[in-house]
């Protein structure tokens, strides 16, 4: 498998985006970037030509990596759409906000009265990838909460149908040791088939040959 990704151009997005409410507050999620970083290290070791788009992470990114820092989902969107035409593989491991604010305050909002936030859905980055580069090998993630294995597989297959994803790494983040930010995970790797990877460190999951495409 090592030779499969040697010299291939791989783009990986990781971490959680942050949508500002005002100049000091915002909404984000608990994504740590650990899974994306584990995949990045494995790809780098195997000789891939690697670029990372990094949102908020709780891990240190090795200085040898080529990194583009972003904060919001729209910045993430812009960076990825710009880069996607030049890459062979895109692994979308970032947790991108599904909502952004209709109007962001550039001041600090006064806290003495109640506050209603008006959110609108963000653009789904993953659905645009294959339109821009139909040749790219697209790996998506699907985090669901407390649903059955069959339902998770159905969600993953829906992403494959909607976004043209070639491979989906799906998991149930309600399970113990599988939450956002955990060191370990238990995942299903879904394409035409379903491969169950039992609870293992994110690093071991990244080393699993099922993740890196064999074309």
């Amino acid at each position: 498998m090592i030779n499969m990704i040697k010299g291939k151009k791989i783009l990986i997005s990781l971490g959680g985006t942050y949508e500002p409410i005002d100049s000091v507050r915002g909404i984000t999620n608990k994504s740590s970037g650990k899974m994306g970083l584990a995949l990045a290290k494995e790809a780098y070791i195997r000789g891939a030509d690697l670029t990372l788009v990094v949102a908020n992470v709780s891990v240190e990114i090795p200085s040898v990596f080529d990194v583009i820092r972003v904060e919001t989902s729209s910045e993430m969107n812009e960076a990825i759409l710009r880069l996607v035409p030049d890459f062979d593989i895109f692994i979308s491991a970032a947790a991108v906000s599904d909502f952004e604010f209709r109007k962001k305050s550039d001041k600090k909002i006064d806290s003495s009265s109640s506050l209603f936030l008006n959110l609108k859905p963000t653009t789904k980055i993953i659905r645009q990838i294959k339109d821009i580069n139909p040749e790219i090998f697209l790996v998506g993630f699907k985090a669901e909460f407390n649903i059955s294995k069959d339902e998770i597989i159905e969600c993953a297959r829906k992403q494959i149908a909607d976004a043209g994803t070639d491979l989906v790494i799906a998991n149930d983040i309600s399970k113990e040791n599988c939450q956002f930010g955990s060191d370990d995970n238990e995942v299903l790797i879904v394409d035409d088939e379903v491969l169950t990877v039992p609870l293992a460190s994110k690093r071991e999951i990244a080393k699993s040959n099922a993740i890196f495409p064999c074309h």
């Binding site: 090592i2 030779n3 780098y44 070791i45 195997r46 090795p62 200085s63």
Partner: peptide, 19 residues
């Protein structure tokens, strides 16, 4: 001295690239 992690990553990558 760079971080040990950077050295390990570069070393393993170099070995794979020269295989």
């Amino acid at each position: 001295f760079p971080s040990k992690e950077d050295i390990v990553l570069e070393s393993l990558r170099t070995i794979n690239l020269n295989k």
